[in-house]
Design a protein around this nucleic acid. Sequence first.
DNA 1: CTGAATCCAGAACGATACTG
DNA 2: CAGTATCGTTCTGGATTCAG
Lengths: 120, 120
Amino acid sequence: MYERGDLFNPACGTRVVLDRIGDKWTALAVLLLQHGPLRFTELRDGIGRVAPKVLTQTLRRLERDGLVTREVFAEVPPRVVYALTPMGRSLITPLTTVSNWAEEHINAINTAQSQYDATV
Amino acid sequence: MYERGDLFNPACGTRVVLDRIGDKWTALAVLLLQHGPLRFTELRDGIGRVAPKVLTQTLRRLERDGLVTREVFAEVPPRVVYALTPMGRSLITPLTTVSNWAEEHINAINTAQSQYDATV
DNA sequence: CTGAATCCAGAACGATACTG
DNA sequence: CAGTATCGTTCTGGATTCAG
């Protein structure tokens, strides 16, 4: 069992979660799902330019983590619906906290980057 | 100027910030600096096993973003001290929010992963 | 002590074509 | 429709060595 505060431990929960939400499409997928279930194509279109292989990887990881459910309907054409689990929904809050901070500071960050680059 | 909510925009602030704190050592470095300035070696030892090149990259990016200051003392041997800027300190709160969520759910995530793997 | 230089392995991401 | 298969590129992180 993992013990809190063990930041040196590679299995540190914070690191695992940051690894996950830090990849390119995971956060976006979760935020897209916050208002209800979506099909594969709806997620793909909502995200924009993402290769189907990569979107599948993203969703499989979320499913494996217990954050998203995947429901397959045996129809023709097939229909697959993704939805957040309760744990997935609980992730919205911390994600929004980071998102709000980001939106509030992105202009300052961009400015800082420009100034830094000008000195180099 | 970036407009909020434009999640499709690759320059989306949320994406930029998640990219940054999602890399391997950035969050850890910021958290280590939250209680005061540290030298290069202190950060390296605090993080554990990290190549100097990678730690330098991490700190340079944070400096470029305006989140960390780098102060060089012209001594022998040289001394370089890193510290959080006000904006860097303001990042502690959202980072802690995510960290808390992670610590609260990491056991559930590990369990979900084990169950998922058992079915595949 | 603080890093810069170099080389390397692996992962992430992407483009495209194809299938049940 | 919802993927899988394949191939290729780019990026990240790591090990090691050397320098001011």
